[in-house]
Design a protein around this nucleic acid. Sequence first.
DNA 1: GTAATGACTGCTA
DNA 2: CTAGCAGCCATTA
Length: 105
Amino acid sequence: MEQQDEPTKDQKIWQVVIAIPAGKVASYGQVAEMAGLGRQARYIGRALGKLPKGHSVPWYRVIRSNGQVAFPEGSEIYREQVSRLEAEGVEVVNGRVAMRRFRWQ
DNA sequence: GTAATGACTGCTA
DNA sequence: CTAGCAGCCATTA
């Protein structure tokens, strides 16, 4: 069996990412912790990279802890993320988010 | 079974 | 501000 009765980590991660309010962003570590994964911040990117085609996960709302995008400037993927963020009302300058990041207090 | 990799994070210089 | 190093741990080869 490859599937379990309970949702997999990827599913949880996607759910968490989807739970991020529009206009805000979260870091990989924050998402990992929120998903109950703890320090598996790296797994977040891996899960997002494995996202299926018809997914509805706003992966573009997930950035690094320093507020910078996880992709190099000029990259197509980078432009897409920035474009989507700007569409959400998030300001991105020089590859970093100039807005208040999502905060669970 | 082991080795290498990675959409990361934090600290130190 | 940038650069380097170590820690972290699941997934993949």
